[in-house]
């Protein structure tokens, strides 16, 4: 699965569109991490627990997006966009969406 956030795949031609595919996850970290983040909030700096959490959810969201695209018979997703929001206390949502397409090499062979 080729993923890009531009409108095309460089070096390849889009032959078919399948419309929007999306993937999202809502994650809450466990209480130990939350406590550490609370302490870290006093002195500032990177909150490693949250960074890891969001990285995991981003990978999962991307996996769901690719899965959806594969089910449609696409071999690439172009114009991918990310969005994050905090939906409930201590929980973060990560949303990723893009357009599923089929691409072939510019020579015309797949």
């Amino acid at each position: 699965m080729i993923l890009t956030n531009i409108e095309t795949v460089p070096g390849k031609t889009i032959v078919e569109h399948y419309g929007i595919v999306q993937g999202s996850t809502v994650r809450a970290k466990h209480i130990g991490r939350d406590l550490m983040a609370g302490l870290k909030n006093l002195v500032g700096g990177e909150l490693k627990g949250y960074t890891e959490l969001l990285q995991d959810s981003r990978e999962q969201a991307l996996a769901r997006l690719s899965e959806q695209a594969r089910e449609l018979g696409a071999n690439a997703v172009v114009n991918i966009r990310f969005a994050t929001s905090s939906v409930a206390q201590g929980a973060a949502e990560l949303f990723v969406y893009g357009t599923a397409v089929t691409v072939v090499d510019e020579m015309g062979e797949q």
């Binding site: 983040a37 870290k40 909030n41 002195v43 500032g44 700096g45 990177e46 909150l47 960074t51 981003r58």
Partner: peptide, 8 residues
């Protein structure tokens, strides 16, 4: 990606 927090 990164999460950075502000100090007190």
């Amino acid at each position: 990606s990164v999460v950075v927090s502000i100090d007190y």
